[in-house]
């Protein structure tokens, strides 16, 4: 039986599958919240979801619409503030995985959430770093959600807001960032990984019904597809939990 599911649902489940028990998961807004909540409900009940605003392990009976949402303060083990939250992201004893989104990404997983065009007089201005630059600097790994389009997967970012593997190889470590880096990129077409040595992006999984060619055509740089395999579609159980427990009001699932 084939199931119907939306891009956001496939993305949330693909990302959620990366989370393991014991991980401390940093969630942003949108699909990333869906993924973080799904991960805890489905794959890693002992993972802890927390927010840069300072809410730690909220009950998340309703999906938050912002990282400051009252729902990230409800049923938590602790409510704190921004400085406390960032002391968790970079804590040497914790394995922290951050979910981020971006307007542009390059082949080393560096992200732009600031602007397109000239920085001082941009064609399009976005929100800016928020906590993204900080978690990209400090977390054990970053999973980024992207719409898979040529104009978003670019050779050169208009502005580098958050550092991934920087210029590839060991350049991130040489900057003085002692851990972390881009772990995966989850798009509406598939999941990308990063080569262990070169730190260049490669195609890891393509979603059922999506061709490798489509992904190549929608990527603005050459991407290695030699390791690509078809992704496992969401199971009925995964979708049920996602729709009925994680996002019962279908605020994000629907899109």
């Amino acid at each position: 039986m084939s199931l119907n599911y939306s891009d956001n649902e496939m993305m949330a489940i693909s990302a959620g599958r990366f989370i393991k028990d014991g991980d401390i998961v940093f969630a942003g807004t949108g699909v990333s919240m869906l993924a973080a909540t799904a991960a805890k409900r489905i794959y890693a009940p002992k993972a802890v979801v927390f927010f840069e605003t300072g809410g730690i392990d909220p009950s998340l009976d309703e999906i938050p619409m912002a990282v400051s949402d009252l729902r990230v303060m409800s049923g938590t083990c602790l409510n704190s503030g921004l400085i406390e939250a960032f002391s968790i992201v970079g804590h040497r004893k914790l394995h922290t995985i951050a979910f981020l989104g971006a307007a542009q990404i390059d082949k080393y997983g560096n992200l732009n959430t600031t602007s397109i065009g000239n920085y001082f007089r941009p064609k399009t201005r976005f929100s800016g770093s928020g906590g993204a630059c900080d978690v990209a600097s400090f977390a054990s790994g970053v999973i980024t959600f992207m719409q898979h389009e040529k104009r978003r997967f670019v050779e050169k970012l208009d502005y580098l807001t958050s550092v991934g593997w920087y210029k590839g190889g060991d350049s991130r470590r040489k900057l003085g960032l002692v851990r972390g880096g881009a772990l995966a990129v989850v798009t509406n077409l598939g999941v990308m990984g990063f080569d262990e040595k070169t730190k260049e992006m490669y195609l890891d999984q393509y979603y059922p019904g999506v061709s490798i060619k489509t992904i190549q055509e929608n990527t603005g740089f050459d991407i290695d597809v030699s390791r690509a395999k078809e992704a496992i579609p969401p199971t009925e159980e995964e979708l049920m939990i996602l729709r009925n427990e994680v996002d019962p009001q279908r605020l994000i699932c629907k899109a």
């Binding site: 600031t114 600097s137 580098l160 550092v163 900057l175």
Partner: peptide, 14 residues
């Protein structure tokens, strides 16, 4: 802080 190393936050003065 160590936050922002390598980013354009430390390349552009607004």
């Amino acid at each position: 802080t160590k936050s922002g190393l390598g980013s354009d936050l430390l390349n552009y003065e607004g």
